[in-house]
Design a protein around this nucleic acid. Structure first.
Length: 380
RNA sequence: GUGGAUGUAGCUCAAUUGGUUAGAGUCCCAGAUUGUGAUUCUGGAUGUUGCCGGUUCGAGUCCGGUCAUCCACC
């Protein structure tokens, strides 16, 4: 077993940007791609029809959250997460390594795995590479992630090296378990390893060399955007893609802003996911073609004829005004989060469509440079 | 017309028996958020205490007058 779902279609001449396809049992994913986050088997506030209308090609769910509730066995019983949530396109599950990492006070890490207390009811649980792989088998996503330890920032070389060793050990154990336990839902699940090593390049290199021996089906870069300067984040991603096999998908986990995505694509990244568009929508911030717009201010109360983004054809912008969105925000009406999230996710996904078109037309680099400036600006 | 009640930030209200620089929520403004720890978080601005006068070392607090609003009764 050494399946590769990724097909490289084109490389830009002027940067490391590339076009590709990830083939899965639930359909193809064209890259570069942004994956909306649907932690608890729901992209918060959106129906699967909404998500499809965003032209999302793949979404992400979280093993840790689904394990705690409703339980992965229950999802297996439903026939897998896609059937459970009525989403028949590709899915990816994160392993829960990041969640365990962010629950610092409630967990204990050992060589074997992580003991933690549920935030829901205080019950004790143990995650091991095998148990997490089993949970992901039950959930049934098309792409499943290694169980890793996200290295904190800042960390010394010694700390990062120790953390990396643990991630590598767990990744080997996960791979072994998967080889002994085939998928249970009747279609393949591709296994992605996670590059760690903190901001230390020699460790990132070591991580990649070791991962190549384990031979996962794709490669993710973890431990980024955890507090380091953006330039460092770009630099580490750039360093990693130089060393990663060209014929495999590269996924930067948990990043980022629209301009972050453009910078990462330029550095040879194929996949990204981030809660930011959904979270920011909820907090009154949307991304537009003119820049960032905080739509909660009083000055928007009377803008009846303007949508959030005049150059956007998402469901929200086609039908609702800034005045209405601001009203919903002030009222804390769930519909406001839904509409703003629809806009933001649509913005991200269509930005990536533009990215693909420009790579195809050999105009990506100039276009992206322009966009990075505009998108970061203030739109209102 | 008579009697009573109430006037404090844009709004709703606090402020021991008179005692430092009149507070809080909301609203307003500006930020933050990056493999979701929840319907987040952080910072900032705002007052002739209705008005005039008096008592007092000291008044949002007490007294007189006046204006406004509300209630009751003629």
């Amino acid at each position: 077993m050494n399946a590769n779902p990724f097909e490289l279609l084109k490389k830009s001449e002027k940067s490391k940007a590339r076009l590709g396809v990830i083939h899965t049992a639930h359909g193809d994913v064209t890259t570069p791609v942004f994956m909306p986050v649907g932690t608890a088997a729901t992209v918060k506030g959106l129906t699967s029809r909404d998500i499809r209308e965003l032209d999302a090609e793949i979404i992400l769910a979280n093993t840790y959250h689904l394990y705690l509730r409703p339980g992965t066995k229950l999802i297996a019983e439903a026939g897998g997460v896609q059937k459970f949530m009525s989403w028949n396109l590709p899915m990816l599950t994160d392993s829960g390594g990041f969640q365990v990492w962010s629950l610092k006070q409630f967990r204990k890490i050992t060589e074997d795995g992580v003991q933690f207390k549920s935030l829901l009811d205080g019950s004790r649980h143990l995650f091991t590479p095998a148990s997490v792989m089993n949970a992901q088998r039950e959930i049934g996503a098309d792409i499943i992630m290694a169980f890793d330890e996200c290295t904190p920032y800042p960390s010394t070389v010694e700390e990062a090296e120790k953390s990396l060793a643990l991630t590598l050990k767990w990744t080997r154990e996960a791979k072994e378990w998967l080889e002994a336990n085939p998928p249970i839902h009747g279609y393949p699940q591709y296994f992605f390893g996670i590059v760690q090593g903190g901001m230390h390049k020699e460790l990132r290199q070591k991580s990649i060399e070791a991962l190549k021996e384990i031979a996962p089906d794709g490669y993710a870069m973890g431990g980024l955007s955890v507090g380091e300067p953006v330039e460092t984040m770009y630099d580490i991603a750039d360093f990693c893609t130089n060393l990663l096999p060209e014929d495999r998908a590269r996924y930067v986990m948990g990043v980022g802003t629209p301009w972050n995505l453009l910078e990462l694509v330029k550095r040879g990244v194929d996949m990204c996911d981030c809660i930011l568009p959904a979270k920011n929508a909820q907090d009154g911030l949307v991304y537009t073609h003119q820049g960032v717009l905080r739509y909660k201010g009083a000055k928007f109360a009377h803008q009846h004829d303007l949508p959030l983004d005049s150059n956007c054809d998402c469901y929200c912008c086609r039908n609702y005004s800034r005045a209405y969105l601001r009203h919903l925000f002030k009222e804390k009406e769930p519909l406001g989060w839904t509409l703003a999230a629809i806009h933001n996710l649509h913005f991200y996904i269509h930005l990536m469509k533009d990215v693909k078109a420009h790579i195809a037309a050999d105009t990506f680099e100039e276009w992206a440079e322009e966009q990075v400036k505009t998108l970061q600006g203030n739109a209102g």
